[in-house]
Design a protein around this nucleic acid. Structure first.
Lengths: 138, 138
DNA sequence: CTCCGGACATCGAATCGTTCTAAGTTAGGC
DNA sequence: GCCTAACTTAGAACGATTCGATGTCCGGAG
């Protein structure tokens, strides 16, 4: 797929300097940034971005379906540029997250208890390699 | 299983009036209360409970394994007296939650990408019956 | 070219959920 | 009936996020 900034431009989204650095902050190797981490990265590239603009922009990208918003146990939302249906490995000690493929063995019948099921997300609670190595995982 | 308050007493937990009304607030029909809703219910039974005591008590019950803490998309944690492994149907419009049994068809190999898997939680994103009926689910 | 309107960005204050703190109260062993 | 530790309290503090008011930029009509 084309990079995020290209897709955004093609949609006619006004790609200002601030929005560009925010979008670029999302397309690195670490794909589960909290809003504040996005802010830090964006500000490193362009000091005159404000926190509010980061929040505004992230919310717009979520509404546009270009980012996934993931609510994390620590209370800070994470933003995931991988919008394909997928699942997460979450370390219960350090909170680190890793995407895992959705093989979706059994998306159950579309109706459950009267709820109309839209999608399924599996969270694997785990210890990450670092915490297994260094930590007393008691 | 014995009711929550009985189990707590049997553990030697000091069952004060405040703790009792908080525990009782958790054992009603609605099993996914936010802290503030627990506070409201507890205060209805005993007006002189403070918010801090509710938070303290809920955190203790979670630490004791008597409650499950669930992080919800709206940022408020929910507390679930059903501590058996299970999954959740979550309405994406109103946020309502429903427990579903964990048949756990395939708890995958205990190791994934170097993560040591402890447990699996499936979230079914859905429209609840009320929102299907009343809402423009657009 | 200039003006205008609307979209965008900014700053700081406000809000929300939660935790902390310091002081007051209670329960139960001696 | 004390003493101590555990418990509770009200309110301040906190971190994450949103809001509101104001300022800036851009593109098109005149």
């Amino acid at each position: 797929m084309e990079p995020l900034v290209v897709r955004l431009r093609d949609r006619g989204w006004r790609l200002t300097a601030q929005r560009r650095v925010i979008a670029e902050a999302m397309t690195g190797e670490h794909t589960h940034l909290a809003a504040d981490e996005v802010f830090e990265r964006a500000r490193a590239a362009l000091p005159e971005v404000s926190r509010a603009t980061v929040y505004n922009t992230l919310n717009q990208l979520v509404a546009m379906g270009e980012l996934l918003e993931i609510s994390h146990a620590d209370g800070r939302k994470r933003y995931d540029p991988n919008v394909a249906e997928h699942h997460h490995l979450v370390c219960v000690r350090c909170g680190d997250m890793l995407d895992v493929e959705a093989d979706d063995p059994d998306l159950p019948d579309h109706q459950q208890h009267g709820f109309e099921v839209l999608g399924v997300e599996v969270t694997f609670w785990a210890y990450c390699p670092d915490c297994v190595r260094t930590g007393a995982n008691a």
